[in-house]
Amino acid sequence: MTARIDARFAKARAEGRAALVTYVMAGDPDPETSLDVLRALPKAGADIVELGLPFTDPMADGPAIQAAGLRALKAGQTTAKTLDLVRRFRAEDADTPVILMGYFNPIYQYGVPRFLADAKAAGVDGMIVVDLPPEEDAELCLPALEAGLAFIRLATPTTDDRRLPAVLANTAGFVYYVSITGITGAATPDFGKVASAVGRIKRHTDLPVVVGFGVKTGAHAAAIAEGADGVVVGSALVATLEASLQDGAATAETVQGVARLVRELAEGVRSAAKTPG
């Protein structure tokens, strides 16, 4: 079920480094540019791509991703179009795992069984749904596992040892540690605290642990990569994309700017002194 994801983490491990996970919003700033951005990510050094499902009310996201979602929606992005984007990407790239990340309502309206079947057929590997904690596993997590798609859970600084087993119970592929209590793109985390939190989670699971929220530069990525199996960067890429737009439209810099930052981040994870283990 998680073959593509497992292979990518194995490859990074063999190279003695953490994996780079990059997030962009599907359909931002328009469907065609979005596909070009997506194609550029692995070429610039991303190991895994996360694709945001736009939602009008992203309650755990900061201003950069909020704005990206609204740009995508304004350009006519829908769940069906996002799955089509994955299909087109997958036709050219059989190996890079694609993880969808978003909120439950658009999936719920698409219809859970239909969504899982179409996502699987499009070449999606897993999903992160922010507003589905373990208490709501019956909604999507369990059906997803049954359909052969990974349901990747967020663990946070407030997830204590008592709660961690419940959070890890039905998770697959990897665990996403949210480095701060906060929204995406906010404060830069305390790297020392993150390292000890990753160590704590690793005592509970053999799954790779990736860290995201507040990672903006190659240096941040390098610092996180010392202890974690992967580093997620989202808001910084989305903000870079936003800065390249002219009157809301893509420019030559849109794909280039995102690719440049991904290369910097990829160098960051490769330069990190990896803690053995």
Partner: peptide, 20 residues
């Protein structure tokens, strides 16, 4: 006990908030 009125209600929140 899971916060439902029939099919309605529930706890659809980010993990950060769940312990709280």
């Amino acid at each position: 006990e899971t916060g439902h009125f029939g099919m309605f209600g529930g706890r659809f929140v980010a993990e950060t908030l769940m312990p709280n």
